[in-house]
Design a protein around this nucleic acid. Sequence first.
DNA 1: GAGATTAAACGTCAAGAAGC
DNA 2: GCTTCTTGACGTTTAATCTC
Length: 283
Amino acid sequence: MTMEAGDSQQDGSAADSVAESDSANIQSLSGQSQISALAQVASATNADESTESEAVIDPQKRGEILSRRPSYRKILNDLSSDAPGVTKIEEGKPEEDGAPTGIPTMAVPTSLYQTSTGQYIAIAQGGTIQISNPSSDGVQGLQTLTMTNSGAPQPGATIVQYAAQTSDGTQQFFVPGSQVVVQAATGDMPTYQIRTPTTALPQGVVMAASPGTLHSPQQLAEEATRKRELRLMKNREAAKECRRRKKEYVKCLESRVAMLEVQNKKLIEELETLKDICSSKTD
DNA sequence: GAGATTAAACGTCAAGAAGC
DNA sequence: GCTTCTTGACGTTTAATCTC
């Protein structure tokens, strides 16, 4: 993907026009152009940095223009160092305090397994088990269980043994340490418990070996699928986070626009006052 | 009320940036 | 050089609003 020249780099005259417009006009702009317009205001003090966006023939210059701009976080943090009024985008900061908590402590899973019902079980370092339900929203469907009594990790023993359904209507996921994660089958909200299995593996058990021990084509395919699902899950969360940052970025730019407009108004008034004083003196 | 329109949010892909 | 992160682009879904 290459970003269009007009998206990332605008000329100074455009910044002028934005500065003259009111915030309603800015809000009427759509999507990327809105951000671009706001970004022009944000960089209005450095308006000389991009004055040629049209008819760029020099390949090197064109390449520079087409290159991706820094991330929202970086832009805003740079901005915040210049302008005290601009708030920084913090790492992993939720949009607001009351915002959905999203994924609680979304640790990078070391092993990801899929059950026959489509759920994903991610075992992260430290014994955290995350169970996500793809049928619902990725955030809401993700649950975390922490094994408090799993003891010392067993080297190379990351094996999940999955029983499709037990006689008492629950699902069991067998995890290292001779324990099982039991999912209750009733109710809208599934509940999970860590239990010590009372019986041997029930019939219909599917065993998923840990990565690194896969050899057969089928296992390789499963591993590829697993990796893909993990990548998609990560990217899903990354996209959400990116959108959150983008919204925050736009908000900050909008407040900066408002601030600069007030400042501009004051300066114009001041100029008019000085003009009046000068003209009255000359008369 | 039914269909059209619009905006927002989402998931995915792809490509560049950044980190190692 | 490889992996991971970041983000624009695109298509889809959903809810709200408008028009008839």
